[in-house]
Amino acid sequence: MTHLVTVSCTGARSPGIDHGLIERLGLSPDVSRTHVGFMGCHAGLNGLAVASAFVRADPDAVVMLVCVELCSLHYQVDDPRWDQQVANAIFADGAACALIGSSADAPRVTGALSRVFPDTASRMGWEIGQHGFRMTLSPRVPGLIRRHLGSWLEQWLAPRGLTPVDIDRWVVHPGGRDILEGVRRGLELDPACLSESERVLERHGNMSSATIL
């Protein structure tokens, strides 16, 4: 194991989870460590992009990607706000791991991209309150996904000679029932395309960055 990439947006400690993993798993004390912190639910994909970049730079690299989220640390049971109660209901603790290398037999990451849409920073995030982290979750998020996802994805796929209808299998972050519905309607997908994401949501809830793995 040459590299260790850790991902989390729940809780904060130093030394971080990378230090604990080195000791518990018996990894080399010289393993290269990178942490992707406080980037929310999409950070699992960011971690995968970082790990893939290490492998492209050094084909002999073997990268362990670990996402750990303890969403229950941020439960606010006394906060009556709608968005906080929704967060309490759908978010869950979870962890996931992936090993990334240059094996010819393994799936490859051929590209990664993210888009920040104007005036959306306040729609979802964490705020530090008197009793820990408080969730900001706007009910407008599914609508934003529905309106913007299709055109953005078409622009990203076009240079690769692809359109959304060419995608055989979809792995969509199951952020919630309405999030998945926003994706389905925004991309005009058959409901069956999101069955695996719906199954993960039903069984495990939204585990933030770990969910996509």
Rank of each mutant, 00 (worst) to 15 (best):
G111I: 00
P107N: 04
C67T: 07
L70V: 15
G26Y: 12
G205Q: 08
H131K: 14
D178I: 01
L65M: 07
P164T: 07
R184W: 01
D168T: 10
A89V: 12
T211F: 01
I22W: 02
V55C: 08
F54M: 11
C71N: 10
S28V: 03
W170G: 04
H148T: 13
L25D: 07
D93N: 13
D178Q: 15
C9N: 02
Q76P: 05
A12V: 12
S209V: 00
C67S: 15
M64G: 08
G47S: 06
V36I: 15
R115V: 12
R184T: 04
V109C: 10
V200N: 04
V86F: 03
V183H: 07
G205E: 09
A104E: 15
G101R: 03
L180R: 01
M124D: 00
L187C: 10
E188K: 12
S197P: 06
G37V: 05
G150K: 06
V200P: 02
R199G: 05
L25H: 12
S102W: 07
G111P: 02
A210Y: 01
P15H: 09
P107L: 06
C97D: 04
A53F: 09
H74N: 14
V62Y: 09
R147K: 12
V31G: 03
P29K: 06
I212Q: 00
L25T: 05
A104P: 05
P15K: 11
N88W: 11
G44T: 02
L70Q: 07
D119I: 00
N88S: 11
W126T: 12
C41N: 03
C193M: 11
R146A: 01
Q130N: 13
E196P: 03
P118F: 05
D83C: 14
G16T: 04
S197H: 01
F117E: 11
P29N: 01
P142M: 05
R185H: 14
E127R: 08
P174M: 00
V31R: 03
D166I: 04
Y75Q: 11
L65H: 07
T2Y: 15
D178L: 15
C67I: 11
V31W: 02
L144E: 15
